[in-house]
Design a protein around this nucleic acid. Structure first.
Length: 886
RNA sequence: GGAGGUAUAGCUCAGUUGGUUAGAGCGCUCGCCUCACAUGCGAGAGGUCACAGGUUCGAAUCCUGUUAUCUCCACCA
């Protein structure tokens, strides 16, 4: 090999850890990840779903980032100007909770530190975890543009958040109001509706008797939360319910509290459920809250933010809500007002973070008015401007947005974007602006205090596609213009509501343009038993350990094969091993190629393509076309499988074997041609595989003779530009069939693997083709001679037979043939043919089929029938001959 | 209470607009350390495509229902 080619022999074993580190560093040093490469190319941009900065990468991230990396690398190789923006999310509640937990170990609370010092602590924490996440992303091979890395709480994002908040405020789309919200007593903050998780719990339905104030009887109400009766301000019945029609308008004397409350009528009440009469607690139930507004009922808060009964709870003040429940039931029972207790299961709302039971509370909070924002977000998906892959997720998305309620965005936390609102201590003016005001614009007072709350984390991550591209900084407009809207968003289906929907409506509102064209949704990674991976089950798998043991390439390959977009899939070590074995296969095939290039000089000779060359080049073209087409459809698994099959089955199992006799033969031109095709096909395999397995492909590619610094920027194989030779490929396939048939006979007749045999073919139609393939048939089927006779002329006696398209194959086995065994073998094959022939004859006798099926299909079936019939006759004739000998 | 996913070989899963003798990996059987690879090579066995109807010349594929299983959504106290 010439000096210009850096070719060298590869070590016997592939050391992934050394190779991976080496090439990642190489790529980074040379700036290959930068969006400045391929300048002028069609833009392709992706923003990384920012991992929570307090966490570490789990397999979900690994899938997500592998998919993004595959798409990014694929586009980069196509000459597109790619930008993949990495970043982390500050993850308000999660991070704050972690740091609080950490501090608690030393007996320190956030209040001991104070807001500023506490936030400093969280930043320290953030840096530590951030570095770990970046390291993990790099280990995975992520080719993101690290110079563009962002953090949802960095200055730029803060600027974007303030800009958005102020604009929405001025547009009347953000408002502050006192409504019933979801309160987490443990996290001590509000959470939004989607952060409440509902799960079924065994509970009770208590039937409580509420005496009428006039002493004429009582109304029985059923409740799952007796403790809230202390805050009841009405009993409601359905207006159509005749059982209660006489009672509407009367008063109840609320037991334990001795307050009079009205009996009201409201359509909301379900006559079928419970007793048909419902106690109404506007301050502690969202439905009751609504009803309270409709009927002007007082709101009596009896449970505080600590989930304990407050001063309005009378004798129960200070009790925990559960404790109070027991006490109330007991007291009612003692008063003879407990009618019965029913066991039920019902959904209980819990905090997604800590699992505490959510307490609905009335509290002043900030909200985003959703209806005007949701409308265009719905429209953009309905009209196909934004496309979900797989499409079924569109329904989920639309269903949510169509029933959306206003979004509570204020959080009683310290870690996050502080709400840009100040209150005037003198005149009460509410000042919302990006810069801190010094005096009240209304009264000039300097007594201004800033709102204590921070924003929901998703408020900032919802701006991710444009804030990371520089918005609203005017100096970044060129980049924004080039890469917005981004090309595709890759994410798990679990955050369609939390994140995807919000990016869409903020993008449409502020950029007046969708944030991305495609939303590529993937499923969850489950454990080998099909369970969700979770901390509590302890069944989580650390991708880093996998990478250390097997390498990033096998992990990546395993994560995207063997499943369909959007479906969950199981993590199985067997599949990981299969991927690892594939790496090994490529490694060794490459070693084989390289160790046969000692005298090879690219372009230095005349090519003389043989059958096998033309066949593999034709198959390469087909594989390249299939891989590109599948990548274009986000069928990553199918694309990867196509590379795998082509590489293993066609290239390794067949082509390399056909190359051997030519590499080791006398003919210099044949050797040179085989070398050229081996190198060429391997080079294409590496490029086709590179998006999936970036490391091993770079390692091998660097050892091959070619131009270019890195496979990352090598041209993606374009099927359109590749040659194919359908006729020769077909002849090669016939030869391959012959080889398989002979190998089958050898195995079934227990011919020693090393033993060379003589072959006799009888054919009129395929003689030329077999002659062309003689070298391969001999080498691959273990033959030392091949005789081609006219059809029906052979009939050697001591021989095993087979038949393939127009060819009788005989394998003379003097003394080795057990006639009965051979007849039985042939009979089995004949029976097989009989079955198929019968099926096809039936089909072709069907007038409907002949009349309505496309001609090509009918012709195809006829051809098949002819083939089977011919084979059957040939084998039958052979059986007759053998029987005659018997 | 709604909505959706899944059901194909012993296991885990592919099968892209209806037409292939229904495929892969692992496992299993038989034979091989054949000078790239035993993380391998060659040859096999193994499936009434959950069940019942329907549409069609033709269904694993489309429609309806049933069953099983997973998931999401939901203000029935």
């Amino acid at each position: 090999m010439c000096d210009c080619c850096k070719g060298h022999e590869l070590p016997k074993t592939y050391d992934h850890s050394e190779v991976e580190q080496k090439w990642y560093a190489f790529w980074e040093e040379h700036g290959y990840f930068s969006h400045k490469n391929n300048a002028g190319g069609e833009p392709f941009s992706v923003v990384m779903p920012p991992p929570n900065v307090t966490g570490q990468l789990h397999l979900g991230h690994a899938v997500d980032n592998t998919m993004q990396d595959i798409l990014t690398r694929w586009h980069r190789m196509q000459g597109h100007q790619t930008l993949w923006v990495p970043g982390c999310d500050h993850a308000g509640i999660a991070t704050q909770a972690k740091v609080e937990e950490h501090l608690a170990k030393d007996g320190v609370s956030k209040y001991d530190l104070g807001r500023e010092a506490f936030v400093d602590k969280v930043w320290e924490w953030k840096h530590q975890y951030h570095d770990r996440i970046v390291r993990q992303l790099k280990m995975l091979g992520s080719s993101c543009d690290w110079d563009q890395e962002r953090f949802t709480l960095d200055e730029g994002c803060n600027d974007a958040v303030n800009e958005v908040f102020v604009r929405l405020f001025n547009e009347g789309l953000i408002y502050r109001g006192t409504y019933i919200i979801n309160w987490c007593p443990k996290c001590q903050t509000t959470i939004s509706d989607i952060e409440v998780e509902h799960s079924d719990h065994a509970g009770h339905l208590w039937y409580l008797r509420y005496p009428l104030a006039d002493g004429t009887g009582y109304v029985t109400v059923a409740t799952t939360r007796p403790e809230t009766m202390l805050g009841d301000t009405a009993v409601a019945v359905n207006p159509a319910d005749e059982r209660f029609s006489a009672l509407v308008g009367k008063k109840i004397m609320l037991p334990l509290m001795n307050r009079e409350i009205p009996i009201i009528a409201d359509d909301y009440v379900d006559m079928e459920y419970g007793t048909g009469a419902v106690k109404i607690t506007p301050a502690h139930d969202p439905n009751d809250f609504e009803m309270g507004l409709r009927h002007n009922l007082p709101q009596i808060t009896v449970i505080g933010k600590d989930a304990k009964m407050n001063e309005n709870a009378g004798a129960y003040q200070g009790m925990d809500r559960d404790e109070c429940r027991a006490a109330v039931v007991k007291a009612m029972d003692e008063l003879g007002l407990l009618e019965k207790i029913e066991d039920i299961t019902h959904a209980v709302g819990e905090c997604y973070r800590c699992g505490s039971v959510i307490e609905p509370l009335i509290s002043p909070q900030w909200f985003v008015k959703m209806e005007p924002l949701a409308k265009p977000a719905i429209e953009a998906v309905k009209n196909g401007d934004i496309r979900f892959v797989p499409q079924r997720f569109e329904k989920i998305y639309l269903g949510w947005l169509e029933n959306i309620r206003d979004w509570c965005i204020s959080r009683q936390l310290w870690w996050g974007h502080r709400i840009p609102v100040w209150y005037c201590g003198d005149c009460g003016e509410v000042i919302c602006q990006k810069e801190e005001p010094h005096t009240c614009p209304q009264c000039g007072s300097a007594k201004l205090t800033r709102d204590e709350d921070v924003l929901d984390t998703w408020f900032s991550s919802g701006l991710w596609p444009f804030e990371t591209l520089g918005w609203p900084d005017m100096e970044e407009m060129a980049k924004l213009k080039k890469f917005y809207p981004t090309s595709v968003l890759v994410t798990g289906r679990d955050i369609i509501f939390f994140w995807v929907a919000r990016m869409i409506f903020t993008g449409l509102h502020f950029m007046e343009e969708k944030p991305f064209s495609d939303v590529f949704i993937h499923g969850l990674v489950l454990d080998a038993q099909g369970r969700k991976m979770s901390k509590s089950l302890g069944n989580g798998i650390d991708p880093i350990e996998i990478i250390e043991q097997y390498g990033a390439d096998p992990l990546r390959f395993m994560l995207i094969t063997g499943n369909t977009p959007g479906n969950d899939f199981r993590f199985q070590m067997e599949r990981l091993e299969a991927s690892r074995n594939f790496c090994n296969k490529i490694w060794n095939a490459s070693r084989f190629v390289l160790m046969n290039l000692d005298d090879y000089q690219p372009g230095a000779g005349e090519l003389k393509y043989s059958l096998a060359d033309k066949w593999i080049l034709s198959e390469l073209k087909a594989a390249a076309a299939s891989i590109s087409a599948n990548l274009g459809k986000y069928e990553l698994g199918e694309a990867a499988r196509a590379v795998y099959d082509f590489t293993w089955d066609y290239f390794c199992d067949w082509y390399i074997e056909t190359a051997k006799p030519r590499l080791y033969g006398e003919d210099k031109q044949e050797r040179y041609t085989a070398q050229t095709v081996l190198v060429q096909v391997l080079d294409n395999i590496l490029r086709l595989l590179h998006p999936f397995m970036p490391f091993i492909t770079e390692e091998i590619w660097q050892a091959l003779p070619h131009e270019g610094e890195t496979i990352m920027l090598a041209a993606w194989p374009q099927a359109d530009a590749m040659p194919d030779y359908p006729a020769e490929a077909e002849i090669m396939r016939l030869n391959m069939e012959a080889v398989r048939a002979i190998r089958n006979i050898r195995a079934e007749m227990s011919v020693q693997p090393g033993k060379k045999v003589e072959l006799i073919f009888a054919t009129d139609t395929a003689a030329e083709g077999l002659k062309q393939g003689e070298m391969y048939i001999k080498a691959l089927a273990g033959a030392n001679s091949m005789t081609i006779l006219p059809a029906n002329s052979g009939k050697p006696e001591q021989a095993a037979a087979a038949h393939i398209r127009g060819v009788d194959i005989y394998l003379p086995l003097k003394g080795l043939i057990d006639l009965d065994k051979e007849i039985a073998r042939l009979d089995k094959e004949i029976a097989n043919m009989d079955k198929e022939i019968k099926r096809l004859e039936g089909k072709l006798a069907n007038q409907g089929f002949l009349a309505k099926a496309p001609e090509a299909v009918v012709a195809g079936e006829r051809e098949k029938l002819a083939g089977y019939t011919e084979k059957r006759q040939s084998l039958l004739a052979r059986v007759d001959e053998l029987k005659g000998l018997n």
